[in-house]
């Protein structure tokens, strides 16, 4: 290669590397701000902002969803399979909301440690399949066989 071109190529390479390193530093520094939500474990450990609004994400615990009084208020438990926190929400839930499903709730902790959500978002996982396949998997699961894609279902 022509020495002048080689020099230019190296310069371009260095520029891209420098920008990548800078971006890496910035993203690492802002890491906690880029995270969309706190986990229930972090809430229990008191790592969340006090008295301020924040987001908490986790799975809706099995058999925990209860509708109370007016029919619009829902109580459920949010878990990351380690810690569990109670959540209360008044409003319309998204289509995908159900037990075992990942959700992200926005709101505040009250004095009793209940998370009062003003917004509940459903998180979807990366699995797409027809209902018959889902049914077959459900059966396979109860038969303790390895279900399709079950190893990839996870909440962060």
């Amino acid at each position: 290669m022509h020495p002048k071109r080689k020099q230019k190529l190296i310069l371009v390479g260095l520029m891209v590397a420098a920008v990548a390193i800078a971006a890496g530093f910035i993203l690492t520094a802002f890491n906690s701000n880029i995270q969309l939500f706190f986990s229930p474990s972090e809430v229990v450990a008191g790592e969340v902002p006090e008295g301020a609004e924040f987001k908490v994400g986790g799975l809706v615990a099995a058999n925990s969803v209860k509708r109370i009084g007016d029919g619009l208020t829902v109580e459920f438990e949010l878990t990351d399979n380690g810690e569990t926190i109670p959540v209360q929400y008044t409003g319309i839930l998204p289509d995908l909301f159900r037990e075992g499903q990942g959700t992200v709730s926005v709101g505040k902790l009250d004095e009793n440690g209940v998370f009062i959500a003003k917004k509940v978002l459903a998180k979807h996982d990366e699995n797409y399949m027809p209902p018959e396949v889902a049914d077959a998997l459900e059966k396979a699961k109860t038969n303790k066989a390895q279900p399709y894609g079950a190893d990839t279902v996870q909440m962060q």
């Binding site: 969309l36 998180k123 996982d125 990366e126 797409y128 396949v133 990839t152």
Partner: peptide
């Protein structure tokens, strides 16, 4: 993968079999 997000992780562009049914 790096952060927790509302958007779901990759279904196809990953070093694993796709988590989307062949018919789709």
């Amino acid at each position: 993968d790096w952060w927790n997000t509302l958007h779901q992780p990759a279904s196809i562009m990953k070093f694993d079999k796709p988590s989307i049914h062949p018919s789709m």
